[in-house]
Design a protein around this nucleic acid. Sequence first.
RNA 1: GGAGAGAUGGCAGAGUGGUUGAAUGCACCGGUCUUGAAAACCGGCAAAGGGGCAACUCUUUCCUGAGUUCGAAUCUCAGUCUCUCCGCCA
Length: 419
Amino acid sequence: MHNIKDIRSDISSFKDGLKKRFIDVDFEKILLLDENNRKFIQEKENLEKEKKEISKSKDKSLFEKSKEISKKIEEISSSQSKIKNELDNILASLPNLPYNDVPIGKDENSNIEILKSGKIPNFTFKPKSHYELGENLNMLDFDLATKTTGSRFVFVKDKLALLERAISNFMLDTHINLNGYKEISPPLIATDSTMFGTGQLPKFDNDQFELKLDDSNDRKFLIPTAEVILTNMVKDQIINKEILPIRMVASTPCFRKEAGSYGKDTKGMIRQHQFYKVEMVSIVEPNQCLAELDRMTNCATKILDLLKLPYRKIILCSGDMGFSAEKTFDIEVWLPSENKYREISSCSSCGSFQARRMKARYKNSKKETVFVGTLNGSGLAVGRTIVAILENYQQEDGSILIPEALKPYMNNIDKINKI
RNA sequence: GGAGAGAUGGCAGAGUGGUUGAAUGCACCGGUCUUGAAAACCGGCAAAGGGGCAACUCUUUCCUGAGUUCGAAUCUCAGUCUCUCCGCCA
């Protein structure tokens, strides 16, 4: 969420920034609402002051007048809050501004590759897709999931279930022991205000699984990513500078409706309603955001290095970035069956954008209370890592070699064979 | 699910209708003292929003939302959350 004061004082950079995202914003309207809002506030405050003085004086002859003032205040207040609401609604739906080194472009075609790493495997046979491999092993069952649950779910069985667990533990251990993240096992359900904090609401209501509850005024949602719940751990707080940076990691299931992606990746486990993801979140001083983004991205690629999976790193262009991000690196892993790279991690700096929504602040060295910076990144998506391992480590007979780094987590087996 | 207690500033904790934005303690910051530090002493220290070039000033805020009153942290109602006891169950 942007600060209306900042918009007021530097409207051109907001115009430019949002233009880069190809979003049409009625700034005239924003300024008008802001102006009226402030006008009403002033009127209201004058009356409040008058009223306060009467009540202090305890002069009974003025009590009637005070009642009248109260009525007026009420009228002005309701006009003011209407306008404030309208203004807030507009502001809440504006995405973050792209950082100045983010390439300009409308969609993924303008993303820029930054580096390539790892060796693309050379198969002497036609590599199979992960779902063919998994089904042939009898360890992935999509049809069964459709029967019990619906489309875009899967049963993972036997050694592949073990692989899923192994990947998750391996990634967690690496981030905890090597990369300095603290492990968290968070709730998988978040309230609407939590979802607002990280930017899922109000705009992306449709992408979320909402729980149906008959009591409680809060709306509750299954988390679409651990980012939501981890980042909100600092919500409504003024935290100590000394505890920054905070680095947290969690492995959680994620739930997404994937509305609007009908027909996309309908086969296999690339795009599921439920998947495991290891998520990193950093809370930092805002001027550290970009350095932390590089650090976090390196933590993610480290996993792929250790798993010896070929990947590339790209920077997302302005139009392809998520709502809250000011700068995003995607990491894409090589998938032999598709003969291309597919996203396996996305690391974003959100600057103070989420912090403002969450009211997450700290005292800086000048003793000012300012908003923190927040970052999040996958490290990595577990489901897609299974896909990548199946496809890159497949053998001609349909068996799967286990990457060296995972063996300790897989009871030291070398290979997954059909049973 | 039944019964009770509670929610106040970074933390702890007073305050039950009238200059209370809120005692006190801790933490934190500045100063005196000291070779330096500690201790002691003195002073400062909430947030959000509005106005002002600024010094500064005004308004709001004691879980949330309604209500009573000229006036609410304090009274009433509803809600949320926390704690204790009992019951039930992973």
